[in-house]
Design a protein around this nucleic acid. Sequence first.
DNA 1: TTGACATAGTGTAGAAATGACACTAACTTA
DNA 2: TAAGTTAGTGTCATTTCTACACTATGTCAA
Lengths: 218, 218
Amino acid sequence: MDNGALTGLATDVVVFTIRAQRLCVLLVRRTREPFAEHWALPGGTVPADEGLDACARRLLREKTGLHGVYLEQLYSFGSPGRDPRARVVSVSYFAVVPPGCLLSVTDHSSRLAWTAVDALPVMAFDHGEIVSMAHRRLASKLEYSTIALQFMGERFTLSELQSVYETILGEQLDKRNFRKRVRNLPCLEETGEWFRAGNHRPARLFRVTRPSRVDIIK
Amino acid sequence: MDNGALTGLATDVVVFTIRAQRLCVLLVRRTREPFAEHWALPGGTVPADEGLDACARRLLREKTGLHGVYLEQLYSFGSPGRDPRARVVSVSYFAVVPPGCLLSVTDHSSRLAWTAVDALPVMAFDHGEIVSMAHRRLASKLEYSTIALQFMGERFTLSELQSVYETILGEQLDKRNFRKRVRNLPCLEETGEWFRAGNHRPARLFRVTRPSRVDIIK
DNA sequence: TTGACATAGTGTAGAAATGACACTAACTTA
DNA sequence: TAAGTTAGTGTCATTTCTACACTATGTCAA
């Protein structure tokens, strides 16, 4: 043992958001070989003096401008053939951001794009697998944690929150049962404000008490 | 990006078993610096041409003789200072084996030892943290998967299985409720045999239908 | 042989959580 | 002021969870 093989090390981040009722991930168009012009996850090489979480966060900021987001280690991918040049292990992460972050992103000139997870392009390396694992993890965390709140902006209605659940789970939920569950969460509170939109009754606005925290429930 | 820093890469495995009603992990005594004579997890450097799972499995077999065990990736640890020599990322795994594997292991001459998780020695590197995360993961997987069956030998009684749950969760369970739950599992079946021990009624012996499989339940 | 001891094995009833279900409230616009 | 649209609310039946105590079957020792 001890210091035998040296290996390339990278972090890659699957950033989720919801746009137009679809679960989307943030992709970066590669410029260089291998996989030039392919879509990839934002990420890159880890310097020897930087921690993994810190590196994932920094690269995410540098490549996409996103910062201060919810970030969690997902899995490490290290098949010998996953990078055609050399052995590179990717320590992958997933992140969740509210819609409206990076609104500018769909400019045609941009090398960044939000892409629906159910309509991904062919991706560089094994990044398609990474997205797929992140998606499964996200869906299962919906059921036992408050991670869905990371998709919400500062203030939101319960219908908007319900729509997040429905989009990710891919099924309709009962409005009354949903509200019963969610109104018992201590991390959710009414703002006292109302959201008016369209020709209908306004909705109460809620906020998350400690926005950066994700609790395990039940 | 692209092939900048090269880093040491290792896998380490937290092997759990139950001995004498205590949850134990398998430790290896180091011979070399750093941390010579300290206890460490079985593991080592990943060669450039080997997958992570395969490497963890191989090193486990080489260092401890264990093979064919349940093995699952846990987390990757990569603080820059975790190895005093150089940056080394450890992709950690946890494994579960039935008691009776490696019975010889407590020989005084041996450099292997089963150690109760609630009485760990000071360990090499950040291996103490790794064990602690593995323990938390194991305890939470008890609740929503059939991982506890990986602790069982080929045939076992329901009381033995209940004792595994109690040991890991650190609390007593109700015998009737426990049996109600567990007898509904499709992966468990009666062998028709009986286990006689001590001056009391014999117990039915059960077996797992597909021993290598861990199901997610509920 | 029989009584003491030890663990195996079993059912029920009350409480809590879950799931199905339909109408009224409040606002906008034509 | 009527039509359209989403917000918001409660009940009942079913299922699941929890607490709880006794009988069965073996061994061993007197």
